[in-house]
Design a protein around this nucleic acid. Structure first.
Lengths: 215, 215
DNA sequence: TGATGTGAAGCGGTTCACAGCC
DNA sequence: GGCTGTGAACCGCTTCACATCA
């Protein structure tokens, strides 16, 4: 058990394990071994054991892991035992699509507000979420206890939006603008850059003929 | 110059370099050194040189790289000199949002068709894209020369959609369903799992107090 | 001189293999 | 016997440092 420095690769895998444990639970399984888990998504069983060992000794030798017990631990570790309140900046197509993305609600994330500069959008209600003026972000964030911000604005505005968001005390930000952002210490930024992903597919398509069998 | 096995980490960075070179070009810069590039997004200059060296000797010792020249090379390497035609499966909020995501058009990706099983959506026109019945995917894909598929359906349908898409000969797939998918050899799958990203933020939020300064 | 291209060292993450415990 | 927890080996990516060349 060393809480020191956990790699993000590890925490990402914890999410995957958690998902799998929920499935196993639904199937009525009581226990599961790291080998069985490793089979499901093809992964190395030692890695699973190591990942889990970062946070305690959850397993029982000769038996494996108790599914429900481990599920509860992972939920706690990932902070999914408490709710998170999300504010989305940018009420364009992407922002509004995310606002009712079922993946949010699925994992204790509630989208509680949208923000935009467009007068035509401010004051509207999209799904069951109100659109506020971005200039009121700090105020609304405080009142609505927002703890996660999602940036869904064009790239050229992303950095200044991030500054504003950071100033309001938000510590976790998800960015969809295809641009690298500078972030202050103590703030966690996660950028989902679709452009890079697309270009990676493009690269593959124009090299698959030569190299082939590539994964 | 070794075209053997290029890491995806490398190709992802090529995308970033390309973006930067376009900016430099817009600023009227003629040449740029790996040091200067490394400064812009904070990265190691040796890494940039190594990445580029995978594909040829584009630089000039004592000078650096010619911006326009390198830009053209990277565009070619990433396969962005030709257009790609995208079909999106799932005409829900996310699918339709992606349909007019400007990031697509920005990088030679044209969304040419949406697919769904919902009778109410089939035949509609969203933006300037038609919605087709998914059962006609192979036919439409062939006729419209689709070479990239985007999966934007609920997780439980994602695998079977992928099978169908693969059967039609598509070699590049982007998946937004929060579930790991099994893919055939020779098909490139890129999964954007928002759930994992969110849970990673959640993890950070519940550990930042203890660990702090974490990035 | 100045910046590239690259072998070598360093580092972090994954896999192996086995001691330890149920 | 079976499975966990973990040191050691391994592997790939990043960084360093420098020979090389315009």
């Amino acid at each position: 058990m060393k809480v020191e420095k956990i790699s993000e690769l590890t925490t990402n895998r914890l999410s995957v394990y958690l998902r799998c444990l929920n499935e196993l639970l639904a199937e009525g399984k009581r226990t599961v071994s790291s080998d069985k888990l490793a089979e499901r998504f093809h992964l190395n069983s030692a890695q699973i054991r190591k990942d889990l060992a970062c946070f305690g000794e959850f397993g029982v030798r000769g038996v494996g892991y108790y599914v429900e017990d481990l599920r509860d631990h992972l939920q706690k570790i990932l902070g999914l035992d408490k709710n998170h309140r999300v504010g989305i900046i940018g009420a364009g197509r992407l922002g509004t699509a995310l606002a009712d993305y079922y993946g949010f609600t699925q994992t204790n994330f509630d989208v509680v507000a949208l923000f935009d500069n467009d007068k035509g959008k401010i004051g509207q209600r999209i799904g069951d979420v109100d659109v506020f003026a971005f200039k009121n972000f700090a105020k609304v964030a405080k009142k609505d206890k927002i703890d996660v911000a999602v940036i869904a604005v064009p790239a050229q505005f992303a950095q200044s939006v991030l500054e504003e968001v950071t100033k309001s005390g938000i510590k976790a930000v998800m960015n969809f603008a295809p641009t690298p952002l500078r972030v202050h210490d103590g703030v966690k930024l996660k950028t989902i850059d679709l452009t890079i992903s697309l270009e990676s597919l493009s690269y593959f398509l124009s090299h698959v003929n030569n190299i082939n069998g590539n994964n």
